[in-house]
Design a protein around this nucleic acid. Structure first.
Lengths: 151, 151
DNA sequence: TTGCATCCGGTACCTGGGTACAGGCTTACC
DNA sequence: GGTAAGCCTGTACCCAGGTACCGGATGCAA
């Protein structure tokens, strides 16, 4: 066992990054991983930092970015400049990320209120209609308004 | 054109929330929307805050939560207590959200460095190998290490 | 009461992101 | 040099999250 001096093989990369071997080839097709060197016999030989890159990809995915967006993020992060509007792309991404953070913080706030506020004992909560508004807006406990008077 | 006094119809809700009508029925099957009242003839009549709820669902999805997780979040946010471990669930979700926020901030930092630091003019960047590490870790500009000396 | 826009349930299909074979070649080790 | 483990390409399949279409029933206004 050992990383050959000329690069890691698919199995090694996959195992170290915790992904399926097929996924490596899939990412290659999608352009997320650039085509690695090959051995004489045609086996892929990956540069060692591929493992870290896969970690980045997986993290970004968990945050709701699509694979295409992840590819963009990586390009941007590299400082490569295939297109001159890349800087603008990065700026846009930052705005997008800020919006995500803000949304997450709202959700966080709502959950925090649920956890440690009003209902001191959830299992024995007496407030039949906890007035917690889920996300500043939305979702009155019973959904339905005070009953319209008209047939 | 008017919202009937007894509730919004599928078309109205879908249009106001910017989702497909089929999606409403899909969410109902998935348990994200509770079954609405019906007209005599069987047409759905939604409570008006359904539109806001859909906004919440879509926002949470953009943040990388699955529909099942969104359903959980909504239950938690309502302060309902179908299961006594709901409080714990909410606590777990908060931790999860904190992790997401942290990840987003790392990515944000990397992008910020790209945008306003070293390469003052991206279109004319002279640093052939911008040493920007994409995410603290990962993705050296060229992927490959300094060339191993051994064949 | 007729006409047209909507809505109904049911089923089939689509996209994104993978995963799983099948059949054959390479590598590594004895 | 034999052989098992590992890798190759290609194709087929899977799941989540929707969308589209069908034939038929409803709603509502003129």
């Amino acid at each position: 066992m050992g990383e050959s001096l000329t690069g890691l093989r698919t199995g090694e990369v996959a195992q170290q990054a915790g992904v399926n071997i097929q996924t490596l080839r899939y990412y290659e097709r999608r352009g997320l991983l650039s085509e690695p060197a090959r051995s004489i016999g045609g086996h892929r030989l990956y540069p060692p930092d591929t493992v870290a890159l896969l970690g980045v990809i997986k993290a970004a995915q968990r945050l709701g970015f699509t694979l295409d967006e992840v590819a963009e993020l990586i390009d941007a992060g590299r400082g490569r400049h295939p297109a001159p509007d890349l800087r603008q792309r990065a700026i846009d991404k930052i705005a997008e990320i800020d919006a995500k953070i803000a949304d997450l913080q709202v959700i966080r706030g709502a959950l925090t209120r649920v956890v440690d506020a009003r209902c001191d004992s959830l299992t024995n909560c007496t407030c039949a209609e906890c007035p917690i508004p889920f996300l500043t807006i939305a979702a009155r406990p019973d959904g339905y308004p005070p009953r319209p008077s008209r047939p």
